[in-house]
Simulated scan of single mutants.
Amino acid sequence: MIKLLEEVTFIRQKIQSIAAVNRCFFGSDFPINACKHASMLLCYHLLKKDYNKALFLVFGVSKMRDGEVGHWWVESDGHLIDITADQFNLIEDCALSYKIKKNRQYLPIYCCPANQAPHSKIFTLVPKERWAWNEDDVCDIYLDELEILYRSFM
């Protein structure tokens, strides 16, 4: 678990370092609206580091009066890994659900047993949007962009 947290922290820090210059998938407003790309980059990194457990990209929604707020994170071996939850500390109240606002302050990194993260209280999972990370299922162009970005971290 400590090794996993180190790798997760490494990716979060690297994304933050490039976001200030609006690089690739990440803009200066990081972590806002970066959850899917950050989660995919995290999966990519963990596989490069020979992480041998299944990785799942997970999408959940939180209901609002006039719609929904969606969020992506990673789950693996009973753990929830989220490197962009702190965006909900920054987004204006009017764009968030009551449940999200009620559970503030969010950490920049969650790497913990899934039942210890606030996500299950806030988000309803969208089953068809939970998928195992497999590079064969990702567009080659997107993978090329991930690789270029990832190489810049090393």
Rank of each mutant, 00 (worst) to 15 (best):
57 L>A: 05
32 I>N: 00
32 I>F: 00
70 G>C: 06
90 L>F: 02
48 K>N: 13
25 F>Q: 03
70 G>S: 14
59 F>A: 13
74 V>Y: 04
48 K>Y: 03
47 L>E: 15
77 D>Q: 12
57 L>S: 03
73 W>N: 11
75 E>Y: 05
72 W>H: 15
41 L>H: 08
52 N>T: 04
82 D>Q: 06
54 A>L: 11
26 F>L: 03
60 G>E: 03
51 Y>Q: 01
51 Y>L: 02
47 L>C: 12
52 N>Y: 00
70 G>Y: 13
71 H>F: 06
43 C>E: 04
57 L>P: 00
23 R>D: 09
49 K>L: 08
60 G>T: 00
63 K>F: 01
44 Y>A: 11
68 E>A: 12
49 K>W: 00
77 D>F: 02
29 D>H: 07
81 I>C: 05
58 V>Q: 02
57 L>Q: 07
34 A>P: 04
72 W>S: 14
30 F>W: 04
46 L>A: 05
73 W>F: 09
53 K>Y: 13
66 D>R: 06
56 F>R: 06
74 V>C: 09
29 D>K: 12
59 F>W: 14
59 F>N: 14
59 F>M: 12
34 A>N: 13
57 L>N: 04
32 I>L: 05
48 K>A: 13
79 H>C: 14
36 K>E: 15
82 D>E: 09
84 T>D: 05
